[in-house]
Design a protein around this nucleic acid. Structure first.
Length: 715
DNA sequence: ATAGGGTTAG
């Protein structure tokens, strides 16, 4: 029996709910208890709903319990279920629990409202799939599966759990669909990067049904088409968004900004950004990130300052963008400032931000800071570990890179292709063959060995270890190759003295239709240089610009100088260097000096050495070579002059260091090594080797003893 | 009295 005060209580409770005022709601609740109407399921449900909407879930649950089993109906259960499901992942377990209790009750049948809450709850965790699928069966049995809300939340659940084709089956069987169904299905394809499927589905939306192409649908489809190859389609959807009056929706603007920044059209992106009426932190982040990703670090940082002065609170996404801009800038002071922001805003425990931070410090050459940032996070994931490995590899600390990789493996964190590529890069630099093979095995186990980044890194690793056979096998097994993959094998052959094979590979690459880049030409020109193919070298050098539109850079000029001097064309080398249109510092003259030593042409050597001194070279070996040349001529004044300016400029020789891995142990030697346990025997062996080498060289080249000592002293 | 979908990142 319902008391006469019922209707007015509803009105009060509704108003409290609408105004999200639990304070007022509590006094109405107290009144319902006083007049004993909580047992009325309409009033009770309103109380539960009021607390739930006000975010007071504990009180909602208490009111639900107070209603008593007799007064609770489907709506009471649904109110509670849906308010938990709106909490997101945190509410998933309570929802499934409530659903189980509701069914155990027996007399109540779940309805469409129940299933939408249950499916939403199950969509957050893969291990909840079985509960979701079970609920799907119950929905069919209780004749709820034809409902649009049920269908939409169900297909969304399958999408979020990675079962897109199951989602599509649900979608296809829906007797009716609305914008939510379309948006959920499109974003399901978007999450799997299935651009074609997403766009095909988008085109299936009935054209007369403008209602279905709303801001959600447009946002989803734009997000998946934000790539240069879909720019034209993206522009068409932009036009459609304008015609449908969707341009004022902030999420549409955000995805348009992303579309244009991903296509490197920063002006178009900026136009959207400027015209966007109410910018969200996402709008700012998208633009800041867009600048950073397009190498416009200064503009990125500038916009961040603007965001800050406009009083918009940066999100973790913003910080990632800003940190990226700082890495690009190699600006440690900017990076440290961003780090402070990050701490102030409390993003230090977010893995994405942490990885960007580690990367920033690594790119700013502050590897200790990178390590400290890495160590400060407890639950590092694959990418963060990989960033740290890459950070050491980029900074030349290859042993540390492998140590971090080893620790990652012990912790059972599975690698991705960049992990493998970075660890292999460290192996290449150390020529660590055994370690490299182990990593190859690991890549194989994880199914990563055939992809482009890992395949290329493997080829390089085998080549750097002198194993061209495995370098070739790995390369030939790759199902697809890009210019980087080709470069790895061409450089492998070229650096191992197999110039002819390197050049044949280069021709094969062009036949396959892969465009060479600057790196390819460095290897090709090196190969020509080593084989003394001067004419061929010139041909390739000229083809860079003429056939491939590539501007020669300092390394290419260096290859040509090397090639000319090896052929003893010192005059040509001299005029070539003087014609180089870019700033080349001391590098080209240094090559000439080195070649003059090897070719015993000390006149040109002295010229190159004097040029290097004029240019203020800090290279100690150049000064030593030059003074040795003068010494061989007995020009003691010049020797004094060179030694003097070397001292004046504070040029000193860094101690040389080398190492070798024997049976998994690394043996390190510095100049004048005394500490190695077998150093006496090693020195005896080295002297023996040196004597025999000199004898052999002298025999075939007719050097005299004096010249040989000059060569030995400078190399 | 109760419900479902979208945008930015290492």
């Amino acid at each position: 029996m319902r008391p006469s005060t019922g209707p007015s209580l509803f009105t009060f409770l509704l108003r409290c709910t609408d105004q999200r005022s639990p304070e007022a709601g509590r006094s109405v609740h107290a009144f319902t208890i006083k007049i004993g109407s909580l047992a009325d399921n309409f009033v009770g449900n309103s109380v539960v709903n009021m607390y739930a909407k006000c975010g007071c879930l504990a009180e909602a649950t208490a009111a639900f319990d107070d209603m008593g089993a007799g007064a609770r109906d489907v709506v009471s259960w649904n109110c509670l279920i849906n308010s938990y499901s709106q909490l997101g992942p945190a509410g998933s377990a309570p929802v499934l629990n409530l659903f189980r209790r509701m069914r155990a009750h027996g007399l109540l049948y779940p309805n469409a409202f129940t299933f939408t809450g249950v499916f939403t709850a199950a969509s957050h965790f893969p291990e909840m799939l079985q509960y979701g699928a079970e609920a799907h069966c119950i929905a069919i049995k209780t004749a709820n599966s034809a409902d649009v809300f049920v269908g939409s939340s169900l297909l969304n659940m399958y999408c979020k759990l990675g079962l897109v084709s199951d989602a599509r089956k649900v979608f296809d069987r829906m007797p009716q669909r609305n914008s939510v169904s379309w948006a959920a299905m499109i974003s399901g394809y978007a999450a799997e990067k299935k651009e074609i499927e997403a766009f095909e589905l988008f085109k299936l939306i009935p054209v007369d049904d403008k209602q279905n192409i709303n801001e959600f649908v447009v946002t989803s489809v734009l997000s998946v088409l934000s790539q240069p190859e879909f720019l034209q389609t993206g522009r068409q959807i932009h036009g459609l968004a304008i015609r449908n009056g969707l341009i004022s929706f902030v999420s549409v603007d955000n995805s348009l900004i992303t579309l244009y920044t991903k296509c490197q059209l920063l002006d178009d992106a900026l136009a959207i950004f400027k015209s966007s009426g109410d910018k969200s932190p996402i709008t700012w982040s998208a633009m800041i990130t867009g600048y950073a990703q397009n190498g416009e670090s200064a503009k990125s940082l500038d916009l961040f300052t603007h965001m800050h002065s406009n009083g918009v609170r940066p999100s973790e996404f913003t910080l990632v963008g800003v940190l990226n801009a700082c890495s690009d800038h190699s600006s440690l002071s900017c990076g440290k400032e961003a780090h402070c922001f990050m701490l102030k805003l409390g993003f230090q425990s977010q893995v994405y931000v942490q990885s960007a931070l580690v990367d920033m410090y690594a790119k700013c050459f502050s590897i200790e800071d990178a390590r400290r940032a890495f160590d400060s996070l407890r639950d590092a994931d694959t990418v963060l570990w990989t960033t740290m490995i890459a950070a050491y590899a980029q900074n030349g600390e290859h042993e540390e890179a492998l140590a971090v990789y080893a620790r990652m493996t012990t912790k059972g964190i599975s690698p991705n292709n960049l992990t493998m590529a970075s660890a292999l890069r460290a192996c290449s630099s150390l020529a660590a063959f055994e370690e490299g093979r182990l990593i190859h095995g690991c890549a194989l186990k994880h199914g990563l060995s055939l992809g482009i980044p890992v395949g290329s890194a493997l080829s390089t690793m085998y080549a750097k270890c002198g194993n061209l056979e495995d370098c070739n096998i790995v390369f030939r097994r790759m199902p697809q190759r890009d210019v980087v993959a080709w470069n790895s094998i061409i450089s492998g052959y070229s650096q191992n003295g197999c110039g002819t094979d390197a050049l044949n590979l280069f021709e094969e690459m062009k036949l396959e239709g892969t465009q060479p880049d600057g790196v390819t030409f460095i290897n090709v020109l090196c190969a020509c240089s080593h084989m003394g193919l001067l004419q061929k070298g010139w041909g390739y050098f000229n083809s860079m610009q003429n056939e491939h539109g590539l501007m020669p850079a300092i390394d290419h000029f260096a290859c040509m100088v090397d090639m000319l001097t090896r052929a003893r064309k010192f005059d040509e080398a001299k005029s070539f260097i003087e014609s180089v249109p870019i700033d080349h510092g001391t590098c080209l003259w240094r090559i000439v000096l080195g070649a003059c030593r090897d070719e015993r042409d000390f006149n040109y050597g002295a010229h190159a050495g004097e040029r290097l001194m004029e240019l203020g070279s800090k290279d100690s070996s150049a000064y030593i070579l030059l003074s040795n040349i003068y010494a061989s001529w007995s020009s003691w004044d010049d020797v004094e002059r060179v030694r003097g300016s070397m001292k004046l400029r504070g040029v000193s020789k860094e101690p040389g260091c080398s190492w070798i891995e024997i049976k998994s142990r690394v043996h390190v030697f510095v100049v004048g090594e005394l500490l190695h346990p077998q150093i006496v025997d090693i020195n005896v062996g080295l002297r023996w080797l040196g004597k025999h080498m000199r004898a052999e060289v002298a025999e075939c080249c007719n050097f005299n003893e004096e010249e040989l000592l000059l060569i030995a002293s400078s190399s």
